[in-house]
Design a binder for these strands. Structure first.
Lengths: 341, 341
DNA sequence: ATGAAAGCGCTAACAA
DNA sequence: TTGTTAGCGCTTTCAT
């Protein structure tokens, strides 16, 4: 029993187990992986010694030869945002039963940083990648695809990237919210639209379609641009309130914008929902605690994460690359006080 | 230029670079790491070919020999919780300049799952670990420390674990909140205390000390147990309102509890802050959007993450293990409407 | 300035 | 059932 150094806590290896037992490393390896034919006796001895020595598989070494790390990368703009945090959780939970772990990288909406982080993930040999990207070109992902690394895009589709996509059905979100306002008797429905071209215009398209379907006019003055934070919702709403006839219902791009809008409405001395009904989108989990609890459209965050993860697992398992899929999660309405009239 | 297979996208290796250039792998390796003496000419050729082939370092292979992965593990109860999400962000940001990445694992407050996740992190050979643990014994971390893996505990100290700790100064939080209520003229100050023994009792201790320091009696009827969610704050507050004299100020274990308490107060037809002033703790980022914006104590989330990460980097860099440190972040008061009187 | 040899800890293929 | 041989892609001596 050789001494392996005095101070350094060299981790125990399969060799350490093998030496004491007069078996080969291969035998140890097989036992530890429940693979191949091993006598019950040997198996027991190995297992016991492994426990005694507190052996831990070295996944780095294993990965080098098997070419699988059982790790996937998750590339996110910001995991402080509740939406992405929940997606991350859902992803982690659905891959865990498959023995997979998740490395999360985030890039603060900076495409260059995103590229760096993606490269780092690749260098760490992740078995697959899920990304909510801010890239404007498809170069980055083409490179990744060229390396045959399974990829699933979420939330934001990137044109020209031949990969599966999972996201909210933004047009359905706009339709659902607007139809709900119509059903509540609103006739002058405004829209505070968001910034990100794809998502925001899909939501707006849904808004338009809902109006048209119910024979309501689409008034361009009732469509005001906001960004995605509450301050922009506030000023957009103020603009709307300046000239009559003021709307009796507003569909806001997302919940923060709706919160800002509600503040503007309250400051104007108007009542929610009696004077103006408000609907947001996103169902951030504090929407329930607001001065007036906010009606909103839940975009199925957990499902997005889960579906993306499942598609990825599928791709990783498959021999030939499965066909590209485009999954849109159907939104659901969460009715609260801001539209109860 | 040999063909490396027809369909499989074998990643390009240093050997691929070397072959085309008639140099050895060693030379390539040296160039790529800016190490050793290499002629400017060779360096240029290698670099160029690497770019042409779109070479990516295989960190798995490198790690196997260097015994460093440049990856740290972050073990969290729940990264959906804004506190932990922000900690994670701060950690990721402070280790990034050192070339480190973060693998986040979360264990949903389940100590057994936590152990599994910790083992998985170790098996992936993380260079260090930051954990907000739910362990009741010190076994797990003793095992990790025995392997000489740098460890920093955050948020929740585990008794008997000889590792550095970074967390909020919970007693100071209790003192700060309570003193503030006193300064605002409250004389009957209640406390809705939380569940987790360590943190909750420290906050309560601060509450007591503040009262004593200002010669106010500590009335046991004014200390009501809550959990850490808003529903428990709601029922705890209702209990308090049942028998007079009702308090004129409440310090709540955390913001969700405070939100629940505020709902109970409003339902009882009482005004915040005129009848009862409310102070929370945690400064969750929506505290500002509530019916009555909530005065709260910011626990320095970002600092906790940053400090922990810095201590860890320090330990990883050090030859001998640096001494164990215990860092308590000084809280700051965020005054909003719920205590403005 | 460059390269040959050895090996990190493990698994895959094949013998025995 | 067990062990031998040969790497995985890289870095580390140590020659040259």
């Amino acid at each position: 029993m050789g001494c392996r150094g005095i101070l350094a806590a060299m981790p125990v290896t399969m060799l350490d187990i093998a030496k004491g037992l007069n078996v080969s490393v291969v035998t140890v390896s097989k036992v530890l992986r429940n693979q191949g034919k091993i006598s019950a006796a040997t198996r027991k001895r190995v297992l016991q010694r492994a426990k005694e020595l507190n052996y831990q598989t070295n996944w780095i070494a294993r990965s080098l030869v098997t070419r699988r790390t059982f790790t996937i990368g998750l590339l996110l703009p910001d995991f402080t945002h509740p939406f992405f945090a929940e997606v991350a959780k859902a992803v982690a939970e659905t891959v865990r039963p498959h023995g997979y772990h998740v490395i999360i990288s985030y890039f603060e909406e900076d495409p260059d940083l995103e590229k760096n982080e993606a490269d780092a993930l690749m260098a760490r040999q992740v078995d697959g990648l899920i990304a909510a990207s801010a890239q404007s070109s498809s170069d980055l992902f083409e490179g990744i695809l060229a390396r045959k690394v399974p990829l699933v895009l979420i939330d934001r589709p990137i044109p020209g990237v031949p990969a599966s996509f999972v996201g909210a059905d933004n047009e359905a979100i706009g339709k659902l919210a607007t139809s709900h306002l119509i059903a509540r008797g609103c006739t002058r429905i405004a829209h505070l639209r968001g910034p990100k071209i794809g998502i925001a215009s899909a939501r707006m398209a849904g808004y338009r379609h809902a109006l048209q379907k119910h024979d309501l006019a689409v008034t361009s003055r009732y469509i005001v641009g906001a960004r995605y934070v509450d301050s922009s919702g506030y000023s957009a709403m103020r603009k709307l309130l300046q000239q009559p006839p003021i709307p009796d219902g507003v569909f806001c791009y997302n919940d923060p914008v709706a919160i800002g809008a509600m503040r503007a409405i309250a400051e104007a001395g108007l009542k929610i929902p009696q004077d103006i009904a408000v609907v947001g989108a996103g169902n951030v989990h504090y929407s329930d605690f607001l001065a007036v609890p906010l009606t909103t459209v839940d975009q199925g965050t957990v499902q997005i994460g889960r579906q993306a993860a499942e598609l990825l697992m599928e791709q990783i398992g498959a021999k030939r690359k499965p066909r590209i899929r485009r999954v849109l999660i159907t939104p659901t309405l969460v009715v609260r006080q801001s539209s109860q009239r």
